[in-house]
Each structure stands twice: as C-alpha cells, then as structure tokens.
Design a protein around this nucleic acid. Structure first.
Lengths: 201, 201
DNA sequence: ACCTGAACACCGTTCAAGT
DNA sequence: ACCTGAACACCGTTCAAGT
C-alpha cells in the first residue's frame, strides 16, 4: 500500500521534481518509477511515453509563467520591461529552456508575453502586418538571447578562442577578454531593436 | 583485411556522414563501428568517447565555415550582409546548430564572423567597449535567431496556440496566422538592431 | 601502438497476464 | 480501469587479453 492510486498529476509532479533537482537527463522512466514506488510500466499507462511526459512538463511550466505587467512611460520602455520580465521568468526555470528547445516547443515559451507585447506595439502606433513583425522580432530576440545565454552557462572551458587578432583597439580586446555582462547586453540589445522598430517613419 | 588501419580522421569522416544523413541521434558507437567495419571498442582508442567525438565533429565543421566577405556601401549594410552570410552558412549544416548548442559550443559558431564584424563596427566609428558590445549584440542576435528558427522547423503540429484574443486588429491576426517569413524577419531584425547600435549619438 | 570480444550497467518500450 | 513482471532490443563504456 502507501500507494492508493497513481494519478497522471502525481507522475508529472514527481517528474518535475526530478528534473528540477537533477536535470532532464536524470529523468529516466526507471528512476521515476522507483521514486513513485510503482512498476515502470504503470507510468506508461498514465503518460504514454517519456517523450510526451516531457512535453507535458514543458507545457505545464510555460502555462505557469504568470501574467505580464509592463512598466515604463513610453511604449518602447514598456516593451523592454516586458522582455526583461520574460527573460527573468524563463531563467527562473533553468531546465525549461533547454527542454522546450529540444522538444521543438521553443515557440510556446514566448506565447504568454505576446498579448502584452501587441498592446504596446499598438500603443506605439503600429498596426497590422507591421505590428506583427515587430512583435515577432522582439520574441525571436528574447528567446534567442536566453537560449544563447543559457548555453554559455553550461559551456565547457570557455577557451580564450585564439584571441590572436589584435584589432588595433586595446580597449576592445580587453572588453572581449572580460566575461559578458549578460543583463546589460540584453537590455542594450532589446532597447536598440525596439527603438528602431517602433520608430514611425 | 579491407581495413588497412583505422585513423582518427576516418572515424570523424564516417561519423560526419552518418550525422549528415540521419541526424546526430542516429550516431551510435555501434552503428559507427559497423559502418567502419571495426569493433566498437576500436573507436574509443581513437576518439575517447562519444561525447568528444561529437565535440570534434562540431569543431571541424565550424572551422570549415570559410571566410566572411561583407558587401554593401555603409558599415550598417555590411554588418547586415555579414549576418546573412553567417546565417546561411550555419543553415547549410542543418545538424550543426543543434549539436553545437547541445554541447555548449554555441559560442564557437559565431567566432569566425567576429573579426569581420569588428572591422565594420570600427568603420562606423565605434571603439573599445562600445564596439565590443555592438559586436556581441549582433552575434547573440544572429545565433539566437538561427537557434529559434531551426527549432521551429522541427517543431510539432504548430498548434494555432489558442488564438482566442482578437486584438481588435484583423490584419495583425491574419499576419500571426500566416507562417513566418524567416528570411524577411531576420533581415528586418538585424537591420533594426544594427541601425540603433551604429548610431553615433 | 592498435585492435578485439566479453561483460557490465544501464536505457525505453511492448505485451500478456493479472486484479 | 489500472497495475505487474518478464522480455526485447537497444545503448555507452571498461577491461583484460591479444598482436
């Protein structure tokens, strides 16, 4: 006993815990079964297979990202604030990003913020296809940035990358030698992109 | 016989072929050994293990990306052209992007283009830390975009994503319903980012 | 220096059988 | 409707033994 009846939610919860603590590669059907105190095969009845289990995990997490309340006085400022919120929320689930990416669910990750972004782009005076393109540009930018950034974190040695070229610009060489300030680079990038996109020329 | 002596390069070549034809997940040590006509364990002598084999594959491919010759009259135009070249080269190796990413080698992918980018940013009048930041912003943008884009291609059903919200902008709703024109979105994004970054204000 | 087969410790998944 | 154990078809890797 001690196991009244296995539910799909229980499977998902336990799986989510395993992922949170040891990463997605540690989530094997057999370990999960052990954790749940059931036979491996029981899991299959509830979630189909490993792939759809991970899919479900990603979807649940993305759905839980919460609401997006922008701050700032101009639409551009508010877009930047939305980007920062989305980045922070995604980074709060360290494994989500890679998991969603590996499962082809990257796009899902920026859907929660889309509505809020549309509102700001509208406020800036863009409509129709032009507005949609601006929203998509920001979405690709934010999610792409977070993907690259997360990747750098778990990157290996981070070799100096044969910094042979001198560039005739010592300050630039020093800047490249320093580690990247990601928050700063992110804000600079999003601000630069947004400024151009929201210009009504 | 028929196998005079196994070399590291031969292992890498055959592995690269397997990946090109069937994707990285099809590259198992056992299949590779069968393809090579050797014992599985021989491979280990030459390349260490599966992980470093894939690392070597990524590095070799990235090193083969070739030179970057920008076109255009203004630095901004030339930066955009560099971004397009890099994107095209990366997309020419469909599995490279995901492989590099999964291995924490994402950063490697944009090193070949860095030197050329620095030149243009210098030509635009930026120096030092400011120039380095502009280069990095473009690099993150390009690689992030390609990551997101590649991911969308192998994405599942591409569910309409509960397009419940009406937005009060039918043209925008239609734009979101249409598939993304990625080349166009890419150029728009890079151009927008570059324009702001290269402004000397 | 290079190659081998056997063995270990894992996987995900299927399926017939149980209650 | 739900759970089980046994079995299948894979993996990557190690290691002692060969030449």
């Amino acid at each position: 006993m001690a196991r009244p009846s296995l539910t799909r939610d229980e499977v998902l919860d336990t799986a989510a815990n395993l992922v949170r603590q040891h990463g997605p590669e540690a989530l094997t059907m057999r370990k999960l079964a052990a954790e749940l105190g059931t036979a491996v095969t029981s899991i299959y009845w509830h979630v189909g297979n490993r792939e759809s289990l991970l899919d479900a995990l990603v979807q649940r997490t993305v759905a839980d990202l919460g609401e997006f309340r922008p701050v700032g006085r101009t639409p551009a400022e508010r877009v930047v604030s939305l980007a920062r919120i989305l980045r922070r929320r995604l980074r709060a689930h360290p494994h989500l990003i890679a998991m969603a990416h590996e499962r082809g669910l990257t796009e899902r990750m920026f859907l929660p913020a889309r509505e809020a972004l549309v509102r700001e782009v509208h406020a800036a005076g863009l409509r129709g296809a032009r507005a949609a393109e601006a929203v998509r540009a920001v979405q690709f930018q934010v999610v792409g940035f977070v993907l690259v950034e997360r990747n750098r974190e778990r990157a290996p040695v981070q070799q100096p990358a044969q910094e042979t070229t001198a560039y005739d610009d010592p300050a630039l060489a020093r800047a490249f030698a320093r580690p990247v300030n990601e928050e700063r680079l992110f804000v600079t990038s999003v601000r630069a992109l947004t400024r151009s996109l929201l210009e009504n020329d």
